[in-house]
């Protein structure tokens, strides 16, 4: 059996202490370096966020271009038909109908999705859900049979036992936004969506 002299024991103890403090120094320095790197990563522009912003900008600009073309066409029609009451009336009526739909002054129908959520939603979830639907191109929305508009607050709809949310818009885009991995159902609240060719929503009250 190994017999350690006092001196040997002292040396082993000292070496062990050295090793422990060496490890401590290593850990402290590593932590500091990691902290600095995290700060640097935050300070440097985020490529992933930038890529998402670029993608959103591209899509938004496409929609704006479409909107501009629509306006230019409207302006041209008004100019061309300046003396023709019938034509001007047609253009104005189309404009009026569009804004009536947006303002919720009429019932609306069209393709879209029907979302069923079989449990309660707190206020913040509702706010986020409707925000996400608008970001996905929702043109008209009704929650549990009640139409909502720009100035509709979500308080009256919070904490209900279940929800049926009908959304008129491009049914493919809406459905994909809801159901895809990383989509609305995954990020905000779980539910089920069904595409429909004809959804009818009441006017806002």
């Amino acid at each position: 059996m190994l017999k350690f002299t006092r001196v040997t024991k002292a040396v082993i103890l000292r070496l062990f202490s050295l090793f422990v403090f060496l490890l401590l120094g290593l850990l402290v320095a590593n932590q500091y370096i990691l902290y600095k790197r995290i700060g640097l990563a935050r300070a440097v522009s985020d490529p992933e966020g930038r890529a998402v912003r670029v993608s959103k900008l591209y899509t938004d600009n496409e929609k704006l271009r479409e909107q501009l073309n629509e306006r230019i066409q409207q302006k041209n029609e008004l100019e061309e038909s300046a003396s023709n009451n019938v034509e001007v009336q047609k253009v104005l009526k189309a404009e009026k109908e569009k804004y009536e739909i947006i303002a919720g002054q009429t019932g609306v129908q069209g393709e879209g999705v029907v979302v069923n959520i079989g449990h309660t939603m707190v206020l913040t979830q509702l706010v986020d859900f409707i925000n996400a639907l608008r970001n996905s191109g929702a043109e008209a929305i009704a929650i549990n049979g009640k139409r909502i508009i720009t100035t509709s607050a979500m308080e009256p709809f919070a904490d209900q036992p279940s929800y049926q949310i009908k959304v008129i818009g491009n049914k493919e885009v809406l459905y994909d936004s809801l159901t895809r991995p990383g989509g609305i159902f995954e990020l905000i609240i779980n539910g089920a969506a069904e595409k429909s060719d004809n959804i009818i929503l009441p006017k806002y009250q």
């Binding site: 929609k63 909107q67 629509e70 009536e100 009429t106 019932g107 129908q109 043109e139 008129i168 818009g169």
Partner: peptide, 11 residues
């Protein structure tokens, strides 16, 4: 912002 109404029609 975007204000394209393509799918909703008056009912």
């Amino acid at each position: 912002g975007n204000l394209i109404i393509q799918n909703a029609k008056i009912y």
